[in-house]
Design a protein around this nucleic acid. Sequence first.
DNA 1: GTCTATAGAATGATAGAC
DNA 2: GTCTATCATTCTATAGAC
Lengths: 228, 228
Amino acid sequence: MPSDRTRALILDAAERLYAERGFGDVTLRDIVAAAGVNLAAVNYHFGSKDELIAELFVTRGIANNRERLTELKAAEVAGGGRADVKAILHALIGPTLRGCLGPENERSTASRFMIRASIESVPPIRRIKNREVDHLRKFAVAMRRALPDCDEADIYWGLHFALAMAHQTTRDAERLTKLSDGQCDVDDVEAVIDRIVDAAAMTLTVRTTASKSPEGAAPARRAERLRG
Amino acid sequence: MPSDRTRALILDAAERLYAERGFGDVTLRDIVAAAGVNLAAVNYHFGSKDELIAELFVTRGIANNRERLTELKAAEVAGGGRADVKAILHALIGPTLRGCLGPENERSTASRFMIRASIESVPPIRRIKNREVDHLRKFAVAMRRALPDCDEADIYWGLHFALAMAHQTTRDAERLTKLSDGQCDVDDVEAVIDRIVDAAAMTLTVRTTASKSPEGAAPARRAERLRG
DNA sequence: GTCTATAGAATGATAGAC
DNA sequence: GTCTATCATTCTATAGAC
């Protein structure tokens, strides 16, 4: 009777299997076997394998975006309508990292699924990420308010870099651990968040200061460096 | 008679098709049709579709790593055995970005293939990237020489962040352009490289200074920020 | 509306002839 | 080393039961 019990069973099994073994290694037949439903039910409820993946990803993505905006609003209220640079960056990358980092065994199925989505980046997920621009725009607006004298392009670069560091840290945490022989602790989530926020904020605030100077303080060109 | 003419034909056609349409949308049958060879030849010469992709990726990857090391050596020679922080970062990300950024129509097939590899990140490519650690270690060594007083973990984080910004810029150049309404010019390759080098260098040098202070200057904790 | 059984088209891989 | 023929598996689509 519950019209979407089968639907929920599929979503549940799919998220778990994808989280465990990745998109490439899990077939629809694996999913329907785990869910105890018929193969055709997937196409009936979702249309295709890609749309099933997309549905899983938007569900988790929406939750993540909501957390981000909640934190952004809180920061704006705390700052009397104008949030601090670091607080904005924190709202942008904190929720994502908190969901994707931390000790392996403490991670939920949802976390593991999002890490997979971040690493494998299959077509349906890329399509959805490309529609994320409107969401990011809200952070750009907040940032312009926080840094009214900052060049607009620099603000976008700052947000881009913050996301880059956060994203790559979830993607390549293993490589960083190996490279540093364990000296970089990616399990200390809040420390990682602070580190990325500080790095991104630095590029924004230092640039702001520099661009206020008369000449515009253009970044040093490359050729100068290789000459003794 | 030329034992690997067929092999070369396959590699050539595969790189071109993968660059144009991505790994998921190109079948082995597409490749052999474009190369004018038989389907079974792929498995004979490469073993599997994944190994064909891997071969293409290592070929280009090796070339890229060689460019990086050449630039690193040059910077070390120019600095009398000790390269400058920015020069090291420049050697690390310059070759990759120069190959992946710039005006669309000027990009070679090899460039487009590497961008694809960066975006789609299929299993065979991930496997190879995981073996990249030894290569990165050389940059860590150079960096320790440039910043002898810097905390070792900070150095690894700095390299990680530099790679993160470079990588994400090739992956999501389109999103950044859209978000910034064209204000961020990703086609000015050298300017992008400088921007990333500056950002990464800042995290390294500022942290070094800070960590020299008596208390260690731990980064501000998150909770402090949300309080008015 | 919801689900099952089944058929179809396409893919990567392989065995064996030449 | 190359090719034909074929296999097992995959996603997708449809016809029809409940």
